[in-house]
């Protein structure tokens, strides 16, 4: 028999605000967030001994974030779907930061000289990569070059780099976006992109 889906999207914000029901609602929500955080941590390369602690921290932080942003819930989705994204995000960020905690992030400019080799057998890809490598020092600011190198070339997760540089994920992505736009414009000028 199919499960009956009960949409409690109106009840949750009310119960979380009402002093009479707030504590019980927070406990109920925390249990859901913990389950979502455990799901996310289990998908990632986190040692078993650290999983419970990381998931609990993620659920705690997600609950704090949700209570702070309760007024922004517009009802465009179920409340639980809206809430899960906070738990999954917190868990993913913690797992990514944990994976990089002992890794130094170095910006290797010489890597640009080697990227054409990473184009494999396709001549067109190798030509594009070589043109990008040549355009980077010419078209990008120092900050754009560093961000592009770390994020796009070295695969540093954006929230890990944001933490190291004391900025936000959104600000770094904006820098990456602007750098990409400049490179695309340059390649279009050279007739390498349509």
């Amino acid at each position: 028999m199919p499960e009956v889906v009960v949409d409690e999207s109106q009840d949750w914000p009310r119960d979380l605000r009402d002093p009479a029901t707030r504590e019980a609602a927070c406990a109920r929500l925390h249990a859901l967030l913990l389950r979502a955080a455990r799901f996310e941590i289990a998908r990632r390369d986190v040692p078993h001994g650290e999983r419970d602690d990381l998931a609990l921290q993620a659920a705690d932080d997600a609950l704090v974030a949700i209570l702070a942003k309760l007024d922004t819930f517009r009802g465009a989705s179920r409340f639980t779907t809206w809430a899960y994204k906070f738990a999954l995000l917190e868990a993913a960020v913690k797992a990514r930061r944990r994976a990089w905690q002992r890794r130094e992030i170095t910006i290797d400019d010489e890597a640009w000289g080697r990227i054409a080799v990473r184009g494999g057998d396709q001549l067109e890809t190798r030509e594009l990569l070589a043109a990008i490598a040549a355009a980077v020092p010419r078209c990008l600011t120092e900050h754009q070059r560093r961000v592009l190198t770390a994020l796009a070339l070295d695969g540093v997760p954006v929230d890990v780099l944001a933490e190291r540089l004391g900025t936000t994920r959104g600000a770094l992505y904006k820098t990456l976006h602007d750098a990409r736009r400049r490179l695309r414009a340059e390649l279009e000028k050279e007739g390498l992109l349509p």
Binding site: L151, R180, L183, R184
Partner: peptide, 11 residues
């Protein structure tokens, strides 16, 4: 390629 997509984005 994945690398080109990383460097140039969706466009």
């Amino acid at each position: 390629s994945e690398l080109l997509n990383s460097l140039l984005g969706p466009g």
